[in-house]
């Protein structure tokens, strides 16, 4: 059994806002083991981003415990344990695409030669070769998002936290990047926590799917999804795949009807 890398126990998070408290996360219990690919799925506002941000130490929980590799989220962040892909591309407008990808590497003190090599290979991976010298505004929204994925991958973190990374992409590019990500994951055995709104995407990529429900954000159901490491795109037409997809859909429906 691989080791547990992310462990949430009875996690609670309430935002104090001007119009009263917002209960974003309630009683979250979740263990993620090394090498797992876990997707968080659920309706808008159910706390997916917030949970990911707690893992990344961008948000402090107001209750419960969270450990990353046995450390506090802060220690893990300082140890540069993860790479994070935001829901928005968040490129620096004054840096070219290659310099944007170089940013985390510069911060982490990676030498020039390695930097150049990683920029090239990761931009290649997201099909952005030839756009190295362009500024972000010269790229489409989807291309910017791909550049931000290349930036997170260039760090080669053991753990990837991805917040709807493919939300802004068209179907074809999305399929391609799903395949690339799956290959990368199969090859490097990274631990991935992945937020999505797409059921097929979640089933195609994950080893486990966490279905969340809103107000307060909590885990409704955790669905196993063991389709193995080798998943060609047309696995999406197989009965096993469709069965899991159905299960996720039912879970989402049930989670939704809780508060209406």
């Amino acid at each position: 059994m691989p080791e547990t890398v992310i462990s949430a126990q009875n996690l609670d998070l309430t935002f104090e806002t001007n119009d009263g408290p917002v209960h974003a996360l309630k009683n979250i219990d979740l263990d993620i083991r090394e090498g797992e690919f876990v997707s968080l799925i659920g309706p808008s506002g159910c706390g997916k981003t917030t949970l990911l941000r707690v893992i990344a130490d961008l948000e402090k929980p107001t209750g419960g415990r969270m450990t990353i590799n046995g450390m506090t989220p802060e220690q893990a962040r300082l140890a540069r344990a993860y790479g994070y892909v935001f829901q928005q591309a968040a490129l620096l407008p004054w840096r070219t695409i290659e310099d944007n990808v170089a940013l985390p590497l510069e911060v982490m003190g990676v030498d020039k030669a390695t930097r150049t090599q990683r920029i090239r290979s990761n931009l290649d991976l997201v099909n952005l070769s030839g756009f190295e010298k362009k500024f972000p505004w010269q790229l489409s929204g989807g291309m910017q998002q791909r550049a931000s994925i290349a930036r997170a991958l260039a760090v080669e973190p053991q753990m990837l936290l991805m917040d709807e990374p493919f939300g802004a992409l068209d179907e074809i590019v999305r399929d391609h990047l799903n395949e690339q990500l799956l290959k990368l994951w199969a090859k490097t055995k990274k631990t991935v926590v992945f937020v999505t709104h797409s059921i097929p995407e979640a089933v195609f990529l994950s080893t486990r799917i966490v279905v969340m429900s809103p107000r307060p954000g909590r885990i409704h159901e955790i669905i196993d999804c063991d389709l193995g490491y080798d998943r060609p795109l047309d696995i999406r037409e197989t009965p096993e795949f469709l069965k899991i997809a159905h299960q996720v859909r039912e879970g989402l429906k049930a989670g939704h009807s809780y508060d209406e």
Binding site: R80, F86, V107
Partner: peptide
């Protein structure tokens, strides 16, 4: 967003 980004790199204040 950009400040959060730098935080995920655990960039120093000088950086």
């Amino acid at each position: 967003l950009h400040l959060d980004l730098m935080r995920t790199y655990s960039a120093s204040r000088a950086q």
